[in-house]
Write a protein that binds this DNA or RNA. Structure first.
Length: 123
DNA sequence: ATTCTTACA
DNA sequence: TGTAAGCA
């Protein structure tokens, strides 16, 4: 994972900062939070901390709401989005093992046909 | 001073 | 959503 990605997901911003960055009230930000739409962290004293990615998501949610979507619809947007990501991950993992199989198969075929590269003096 | 939870308008 | 109370 690149440092950039890690930094953007580091939760370091307290409520007051998020309010200024999003022009939302603490009430609204907590509302998104309580519905699980943002993955904020908590300090040892129960204070919420947000990351830059959280800020982006909060602004996105704000737009969705402004366009007339309700919380449940927005939830679906993100759950379906992560479903797609999991599918892509599975496809990627499948490709890797498929390539492995092809590699073994190629070796077997070459060996069986006596066409293995640099095998003239081998064996 | 700042943020949190709960509850009521 | 806003706001107020009482706590951390």
């Amino acid at each position: 994972m690149s440092e950039k990605v890690i930094r953007r997901s580091l939760a370091v911003l307290p409520m007051g900062t998020v309010m200024k960055l999003t022009s939302l009230t603490a009430r609204q930000i907590r509302y998104y939070d309580d519905h699980g739409l943002v993955q904020s962290q908590r300090t040892s004293t129960n204070r919420r901390l947000y990351s830059l990615n959280d800020i982006d998501r909060i602004l996105e949610i704000k737009d969705y709401l402004a366009e007339g979507m309700n919380i449940d619809q927005i939830k679906r947007v993100y759950t379906k989005q992560s479903e797609r990501k999991n599918q892509q991950q599975k496809r990627k993992a499948g490709q890797v093992s498929d390539n492995r199989v092809r590699e073994y198969l190629r070796d077997d075929i070459l060996r069986a046909g006596g066409l293995y590269p640099n095998s003239n003096s081998q064996f």
